[in-house]
Design a protein around this nucleic acid. Structure first.
Length: 293
DNA sequence: ACAATATCCTGCGAGC
DNA sequence: TGCTCGCAGGATATTG
């Protein structure tokens, strides 16, 4: 599931592929139009996207933003199983299949529900098994002024995001630390995987509430979070589930994944069996010994 | 004003 | 073998 490192990997991949090309959208195809939330009408969306040039691709939290000509922006959120692929596909019956070696053969790359055709002959495809991804076309000015965009918390990996700012951001909430880390209005980019991994590294119990955390614990969480996200970006993200990079390839975070989906395995630090418990509607993985308090 | 719950989806694995 | 059932989850909407 794409979190900050995965979205960053996708954005870097798209920039590598498109930077020197100044590509332009020439058409859009979709067989699941509900993915497109704005404008709701697919024909309007198509008309809006046609002939627009891609001027810049960046991310804000887990959102991918394509800045387009005429002051428009395309916003894509991959949600749980969505991932953007860059290459060339051919139609086979009701499905699209990648041509040549453009996209790595992989089951999860075969759920193409949205295709953008570019004037360089290539395509940007959204493969999304569970169909939760969102795509929106905005006037750039309106997107940047929207409540959804302005309610997003700070970027954790920004140099200017100091420990003091982290503490200040968290102090707005009183709930369980894991839930607060995943709240996109507090800080952006963290989801179920990296909240579990960072708290294990920091040796802090995910159920512990914000007011009960010591300054030392907050420091450890801040350092662990930044470190684990940075390391995951270097490894091109986590591909345990459906996430793949723009070439359809897996990331390597598995090498340093310590607790997420490791229930029943031994803790790499102390050998205690990793537990899984629910926090809200999400599964939380932790070491009951290392993260006791 | 806040927190808990339902909603969207579909492949997969467990159980019979 | 083949069926059903429950589970996974980010963000938003709705209910308590």
């Amino acid at each position: 599931m794409p979190e900050l490192p995965e979205v960053e990997t996708t954005v870097r991949g798209l920039n590598r592929a498109l930077n020197s090309l100044s590509a332009r959208f020439i058409d859009v195809w979709a067989d699941w139009k509900k993915t497109i939330k704005k404008p709701r009408n697919f024909k309007s969306f198509k008309a809006g996207i046609k002939k627009k040039k891609i001027e810049k691709i960046w991310r804000r939290g887990k959102n991918i933003i394509f800045e387009l000509s005429d002051n428009y922006s395309l916003l894509i959120h991959q949600k749980l199983t969505g991932h953007l692929l860059y290459g060339y596909w051919v139609r086979r019956g009701n499905n699209w299949q990648p041509s040549g070696n453009d996209i790595l053969a992989d089951r999860v790359n075969n759920y193409i529900h949205l295709l953008f055709f570019l004037d360089n002959g290539k395509m940007i495809a959204l493969s999304d098994l569970r169909k939760f991804a969102n795509v929106e076309l905005w006037k750039t000015e309106e997107l940047l002024a929207s409540s959804g965009f302005n309610n997003l918390g700070p970027e954790i990996l920004e140099k200017s995001f100091t420990f003091e700012k982290f503490k200040e951001a968290l102090s707005k909430k009183k709930g369980k630390i894991k839930e607060v880390l995943m709240n996109q209005s507090v800080i952006v980019g963290v989801g179920n995987i990296y909240s579990d991994e960072a708290l294990w590294r920091a040796q802090v119990n995910p159920f512990k509430k914000i007011p009960d955390l010591t300054n030392r614990e907050l420091e450890k969480i801040y350092d662990s979070l930044r470190d684990v996200l940075q390391k995951s970006i270097e490894l091109h993200g986590e591909s345990f589930s459906d996430y793949r990079d723009t070439n359809g390839e897996k990331g390597g975070f598995d090498k340093i994944r310590m607790v997420y989906r490791r229930k029943g395995e031994k803790c790499q630090c102390c050998g205690t069996i990793i537990k899984r418990k629910k926090i809200g509607s999400r599964s939380c993985h932790f070491c009951p010994a290392c993260q006791k308090i």
